[in-house]
Design a protein around this nucleic acid. Structure first.
Lengths: 352, 352
DNA sequence: AATTGGCACTCTAATGCACCGAGTGCCAAT
DNA sequence: ATTGGCACTCGGTGCATTAGAGTGCCAATT
């Protein structure tokens, strides 16, 4: 019987480590014979078998059938990434390359899209980046346009060039002049503030004595409330390289693929996972069933939040099979998150 | 040897028809035995074999191997859809259902998206709808917003509520007032015209004597030129139900799926095919390799342009395996195209 | 002359079987 | 504690056989 002392044994951990590394690189269940040839642990197959039996008792590895090697379990991977991993940081050449790729003007200067594509291309898996949270963007300009039957089209621009729009319903018709006036007021008072700040200010105004406001101001505030007060939470993300996932045998089953791609289309599963890692700082990893979504049972997700001005505004990550090269992916995700944050920063500073 | 008279023979056509229908419903190569049981042609298996041999000589059917039944070739399908098909129009109940689905406000009243989803859901294949061509939309409102370093963000609204934006580069900086004035001018002169008309008018203005214009007008015209004169041709489409395609055995090969989904992501292949049927009127069908794109070798594409005010503004269609129920799909595509056109029509009229 | 039944032939898919190789678990020896 | 040895298990492969479906062709029938 394996006691706790034995599992803390450096040797068994080393063995687990090389086993997992081997499995990740080969994709085949790895047996005692192969491990015995590894120079880092100079052991006979028999010894290795004993250790592996212990690891199996602890639920760290698993045998698909009697005469196949061992395969890491989720628990095994977890231990591996938590304590056994030797992350190799990217060298400066790669970082520079990433940086350039991020700012490439290829597709209309879409930095977020570029980040997603870079992650996908470099890892040969799927890259995902959430759009920066609306709340934290700065209001630059707002505009109202009357539509038919009491509806008003609101257009607002944030952060230099991102255009959003929303239709709000009002109970009476407004003249273009009124709307123009309201927009002017809002632009002058709230221009430059973050949407969160705008929202707060609006709510405060509404609670204060409304008598002191004139008609135009009141209208402006009401319109702004309709636009910003209800959190539209338009979470969305850019996903790239989904098709790369088809190359992996462990995912390429018909039903599996279908589930996976449907999850991508419906978005909420991915959103939920990404949101979770919004809170935590630094790289976070979901391995296999840890995600809690059946579609991702065979997948791992490596995520990292990214920040502008020390404020977390979004999350990016890589989705691939549980059998992925975590050291590399973690490094990529980490660096890309930092670079993306820097690229989005209005006042350019060197991040590293 | 089969002569021409023989192929025009009603019987062999009838046979081809039932063969294809059978193949479409079963997905198995169909042999003489099965066909002999069909009541519509009362023939012995031997006779059927003779006829099938003729059809094979003509390249209409094909035998995967010696002792498998026959499978239609592209040429066979072509003949089938061109002359043998009995399209059953939808009954009014289905039409009403479609109509309601189209106008459902589920996802922000996105009529085009609804159309795509409807096509996908009803056919259990992939639905695709191009966005209405920009050129034919009417300009409702335009607005300029100065950005840093000589760039200007142009926002314009078309057709009541669609918001577009574009960044243009100018060689000098403009004051907000100048830009406001330019926008006012353009809104008053060109508001309500189609983008194509605006573009034409702008080009004409530029050729005329520019002396008679004042500074403000000149600026406005220049800005408009930058915005509209170069045809941005932002072709795009909404694709839904791609994952439905994974269910079909003939497409579910790993490599096949990958090619297909990559084509969907890159968009240009699909765009090109859809553009082709923009010219033709009514339903058009691409069968298998007819598309000319390897990724769609095993697919058929049923398309139809849709029109607003008798002007073709876009195309929609269904993508599925060559073995699809053409009668049904054609009917769906046809009706959906008409309903979508009607739904987009500013002045509501009953389409049918 | 068209249609049909009969028959030999071909090819696939499924089945059973033997065998190899990889890997394990256990035990006894070191 | 480690190791070599050995019996055992199990998946994969190669091979032969069989069953079934379907064809092509020919001669008989209508």
């Amino acid at each position: 019987m394996a006691n706790q002392a034995q599992i803390l044994n450096g040797r068994s951990l080393q063995l687990l480590k090389t086993l997992i590394e081997r499995y990740i690189s080969d994709g085949q269940p790895v047996g005692s014979r192969i491990l015995s040839k590894d120079p880092s642990l100079n052991l006979s197959p028999a010894t290795i078998r004993n250790v592996m039996a212990d690891l199996e008792d602890l639920g760290l590895v698993h045998s698909p059938h009697t005469s196949a090697g061992r395969v890491p379990t989720v628990k095994g991977y977890r231990l591996f990434v938590d304590s056994l991993l030797t992350i190799k940081p990217l060298d400066s050449k790669e970082v520079r390359c990433l940086h350039q790729g991020l700012l490439a003007q290829g597709d209309g200067g879409d930095v977020v899209g570029n980040a997603s594509r870079l992650l996908a291309d470099l890892t040969q898996m799927a890259g995902v980046v959430t759009l920066p949270k609306r709340e934290l963007l700065c209001l630059r300009h707002i505009e109202f346009l009357p539509l038919s039957s009491g509806r008003v089209l609101v257009i607002f621009v944030t952060n230099e060039q991102e255009v959003h729009n929303k239709i709000i319903h009002t109970n009476r018709l407004f003249s273009p002049a009124e709307l123009q006036q309201a927009a002017n007021y809002l632009n002058s008072v709230y221009g430059g503030l973050s949407l969160a700040a705008v929202r707060e200010a609006i709510l405060k105004e509404l609670q204060e004595d409304q008598q002191r406001m004139n008609q135009g101001m009141l209208l402006a505030i009401k319109m702004a409330e309709l636009t910003f007060a209800t959190d539209t939470g338009q979470d969305d993300y850019v996903l790239t390289g989904e098709t790369n996932l088809m190359e992996f045998n462990e995912l390429s089953g018909r039903d599996h693929l279908k589930q996976l791609f449907e999850a991508f289309n419906q978005k909420q599963a991915v959103i939920h996972l990404l949101d979770q890692s919004m809170k935590s700082e630094g790289v976070q990893i979901f391995i296999g069933k840890e995600s809690g979504y059946q579609a991702f049972d065979q997948c791992s997700l490596v995520t990292s939040p990214y920040s502008v001005n020390d404020e977390v505004v979004g999350v990016l990550g890589v989705i691939g099979p549980t059998r992925m090269s975590y050291e590399k992916v973690i490094a990529f995700v980490d660096v890309t998150a930092k670079l993306l944050g820097a690229a989005l920063n209005p006042k350019p500073t060197s991040p590293l």
